[in-house]
Computed example of a mutant assay.
Amino acid sequence: MTKKSVKAPAKSAKPATKAAPAAKAAPKAEASKVAKSQLVEMVADKTGLTKKQSDEAVSAALEVILEAIKGGQSVGLPGLGTLSVKATAARTGVKPGTSEKIQIPAGKKVAFKVATTLKATL
């Protein structure tokens, strides 16, 4: 029993050290992400609208963008880029672990092309 309890912390210590850099990387990624609530606050600050009005405006804009994409239309966002729907062809894939060949059906995906002005400033 004692050896098992000694081995268990050693095993968990190794993943903990491996997870520690990932844990440090995750907050940095989260810190650079702008949530909807933060976006609403930024819009309110820039426009002088109340937070409630800004929330309604942001929500309405997102709904319109989603409806257009679901309808198969492209959405151009000046200075940001273009969202569009692309068709994917049916293809043969390999199941990980078993190396079994499987058929992946055709489908659709959302593609984003960054605006050249934004790409130049990054």
Results as ranks from 00 to 15, higher is better:
9 P>I: 14
12 S>W: 09
104 I>P: 06
2 T>A: 14
122 L>W: 05
1 M>T: 11
63 E>H: 09
90 A>I: 10
34 V>E: 00
34 V>C: 03
69 I>D: 02
43 V>Y: 10
18 K>F: 13
118 L>F: 10
99 S>K: 15
70 K>A: 14
114 V>A: 10
22 A>P: 00
40 V>D: 05
117 T>W: 01
78 P>V: 12
71 G>I: 04
43 V>D: 02
35 A>E: 08
24 K>V: 10
45 D>Y: 03
89 A>I: 03
69 I>S: 06
103 Q>P: 00
90 A>F: 04
74 S>E: 15
110 V>R: 03
23 A>E: 13
68 A>H: 08
99 S>I: 01
118 L>T: 00
40 V>Y: 02
109 K>P: 03
21 P>V: 13
77 L>M: 09
118 L>A: 11
119 K>H: 03
40 V>W: 00
33 K>I: 11
24 K>E: 14
25 A>V: 10
63 E>C: 01
102 I>M: 11
4 K>M: 06
72 G>E: 09
122 L>F: 10
80 L>M: 13
38 Q>V: 06
89 A>H: 05
100 E>T: 13
77 L>K: 03
11 K>Y: 12
29 A>N: 03
72 G>R: 01
116 T>M: 00
65 I>K: 01
104 I>Y: 07
69 I>Y: 03
18 K>C: 07
112 F>I: 04
59 S>D: 09
84 S>N: 08
32 S>N: 12
26 A>K: 14
24 K>D: 13
38 Q>G: 11
72 G>Y: 04
4 K>D: 07
99 S>L: 06
76 G>M: 08
45 D>N: 12
18 K>L: 15
89 A>Y: 06
4 K>I: 04
57 A>R: 02
110 V>S: 05
60 A>L: 13
77 L>E: 06
6 V>I: 15
91 R>P: 02
104 I>W: 05
108 K>H: 08
77 L>R: 06
50 T>F: 07
115 A>Q: 03
58 V>Y: 07
61 A>K: 06
97 G>Y: 04
1 M>C: 07
31 A>P: 00
121 T>F: 02
84 S>C: 02
18 K>V: 14
24 K>Y: 05
81 G>W: 00
9 P>F: 13
105 P>C: 04
106 A>D: 07
53 Q>Y: 07
49 L>Y: 14
84 S>M: 05
